[in-house]
């Protein structure tokens, strides 16, 4: 029976090379997390950065707060968030001189993915109507296959809070999908200008 992620991480504290086993196990899901919220190219760029940051921070992993997998998504979330901030600063800087062609790697990227997948307009508008943290919870559970408690660990919130937020988000999405509003026919109409996942 292979060692658990927690055992591998503990071993990596005294034998750094052991950490590579976690890279082997979790690169695909971590890359998927990054890619779903940005683009393939951005995910390619940020995957190594995520692993380096996880390696450097492994002494701060606390098994009492969730499994290694959830902690890794938390690291990826921080790396992506830093890249988004950097991107926005660069965008503000260069927009004074020239147009920027890179898409912003935040809710826009998620919405573009939903659009490309021909996701039902009602669902798109329902997701857009959620608060950033609620939407992120839904996406962690549906896309990353995390339990509510694991998703809570990624976001640094108590599991009970995550469950109640998910309940609220689910109810809201159900309403949107079952009773489409005029806005649902045109997701851009309800597109939040600052509703990026956070």
């Amino acid at each position: 029976m292979p060692d658990s992620d927690e055992d591998v991480l503990a071993r990596s504290l005294r034998q750094a090379a052991a950490f590579e086993e976690l890279v082997r196990r979790h690169s695909a899901p971590v890359h998927g997390y990054l890619q779903r919220r940005s683009s393939a190219q951005v995910a390619d760029d940020l995957l190594a950065e995520t692993w380096l940051q996880a390696f450097a921070s492994r002494g701060s992993y606390d098994p009492g707060r969730g499994p290694v997998r959830a902690w890794l998504f938390g690291v990826a979330r921080h790396v992506l968030s830093a890249a988004q901030r950097q991107h926005r600063r660069a965008h503000q800087e260069s927009s004074r001189n020239e147009a920027v062609t890179d898409p912003a790697p935040d809710w826009d990227a998620v919405d573009a993915r939903l659009d490309a997948a021909a996701t039902a307009p009602a669902l798109r508008s329902g997701l857009a109507s959620l608060t950033g943290p609620d939407r992120e919870l839904v996406l962690l559970v549906v896309w990353e296959q995390l339990s509510p408690a694991e998703a809570a660990a990624v976001l640094g919130i108590p599991p009970g809070t995550a469950r109640s937020r998910l309940h609220r988000a689910r109810r809201q999405l159900r309403q949107h999908v079952s009773t489409p509003t005029p806005a649902a026919a045109d997701p851009a109409a309800s597109h939040p200008s600052s509703g990026r996942p956070s």
Binding site: H31, R113, L114, A117, A120, L127, L139
Partner: peptide, 11 residues
């Protein structure tokens, strides 16, 4: 529907 939209190629 949402899960389908989350399909991405592996690295």
């Amino acid at each position: 529907d949402l899960a389908r939209a989350g399909a991405v190629p592996a690295p």
